[in-house]
């Protein structure tokens, strides 16, 4: 299933990346896959080569990565009410015994 993400990947554009005109469209498609660790080895390689020569994409990738990390650090902020586990257990197990 994971491999379906590579459907749009075109090897010829990987070769283009070595030239002067990298394929931004292809790179944009792969950016999220790399960010989310869903990219296959070929896609990773292609992306790495692309951003080495492409400042805007290098920046976008780093901004996206920073946001992703920030979300992880800052948006996990709700503490579970202390009585919730006990309430759940008593309802679940009481119900089960009936």
């Amino acid at each position: 299933m994971g491999l379906s993400s590579t459907d749009s990947f075109d090897e010829s554009s990987s070769r283009n990346a070595q030239g002067v005109q990298p394929d931004h469209k292809e790179c944009l498609k792969i950016l999220n896959l790399v960010l989310d660790e869903e990219a296959g080895p070929k896609e990773q390689e292609y992306f790495k080569k692309h951003i080495e020569n492409c400042m805007p994409y290098y920046e976008i990738y780093n901004v996206d990565k920073a946001i992703k990390e920030l979300i992880k650090q800052k948006c996990y902020d709700k503490e579970v009410p202390s009585d919730l586990v006990d309430q759940i257990k008593s309802k679940v197990f009481q119900g089960a015994e009936e």
Binding site: I60, V63, A66, L70, I71, Q73, K74, C75, D77
Partner: peptide
Amino acid sequence: QSITTDLRIETVQDMIGDEIS
């Protein structure tokens, strides 16, 4: 296809938490 924002990494790193939340 377009690059939607002009956010810079320094700006993101300056955000302290409430903004992102």
